[in-house]
């Protein structure tokens, strides 16, 4: 479970939130929604310990987020960054970088199948495929790590309706995953259990 209490976050030229409190229960999916530049991605970065809010408490699976617990907390998470603009050339390189074991590599291929990008992952370098295909391969890699909390930053921004349906089917096949995402896509917002508007 994720529990955030009275989060205050702002940057020198940008206000994000004041006294924001919310809870995400195990197995639930929520979405931070709102226009671009409102700080949706920043809130995900707060949960990963990349940004420290001015004040507020964050608890993840009973661990208070601080420098002593951050490694354990991150090991419960996977994160799909926005655009997945990673300097990686292929699915193989990605699995090497994540130091996947044999079981994870097998799951990586299964998720690529489910997300409709197996051929791209097997045969093509990332320079030859679209942003949406690359994003789905990166997501497949993350999902293969089999962690309980899934953070998705604009997961459908580069996907067509058919690919979005494949993504829903894939996520539905994973029991008891807690999903925290950002999006302003209506279809994605409808898919999530709850929305927090920024």
């Amino acid at each position: 479970m994720i529990k955030c209490e009275k989060i205050n976050l702002s940057f020198p030229k940008q206000f994000i939130c004041k006294d924001l409190s919310f809870e995400v229960f195990a197995g639930e999916s929520i979405c931070f929604s709102g226009p671009s530049g409102k700080g949706k991605s920043s809130l995900l970065k707060v949960l990963m310990g990349f940004i420290t809010p001015q004040s507020g408490n964050i608890q993840i699976d009973g661990l208070e987020l601080n420098s002593d617990t951050i490694a354990a907390i991150r090991n419960k998470m996977i994160w799909l960054p926005q655009n997945s603009n990673l300097p990686v050339d292929s699915a193989n390189e990605l699995s090497d970088l994540l130091q996947m074991n044999a079981k994870q590599v097998e799951r990586f291929q299964q998720f690529q199948d489910q997300l409709g990008v197996r051929e791209c992952g097997d045969d093509k370098s990332f320079a030859e495929i679209s942003g949406g295909q690359k994003q789905r391969i990166v997501l497949a890699a993350c999902l293969s790590l089999d962690r309980s909390i899934i953070l998705l930053d604009e997961p459908v921004s580069a996907l067509d309706d058919y690919s979005i349906d494949l993504l829903f089917a894939t996520l539905n096949s994973l029991p008891n995953k807690t999903i925290v995402s950002t999006s302003h896509n209506k279809k994605w917002i409808d898919y999530c259990n709850r929305t927090i508007e920024l």
């Binding site: 990963m48 990349f50 490694a71 991150r74 090991n75 998470m77 996977i78 994160w79 960054p81 603009n85 990673l86 300097p87 990686v88 970088l97 994540l98 130091q99 890699a141 993350c142 790590l145 953070l151």
Partner: peptide, 22 residues
């Protein structure tokens, strides 16, 4: 230049040591 990759590996990898390895 490639901080996105470092932070990606920091969360999705299993340790800070491994995220710096490449």
């Amino acid at each position: 230049k490639e901080q996105d990759l470092y932070y990606f590996l920091l969360v999705n990898g299993d340790s800070r040591k491994n995220s710096l390895a490449p």
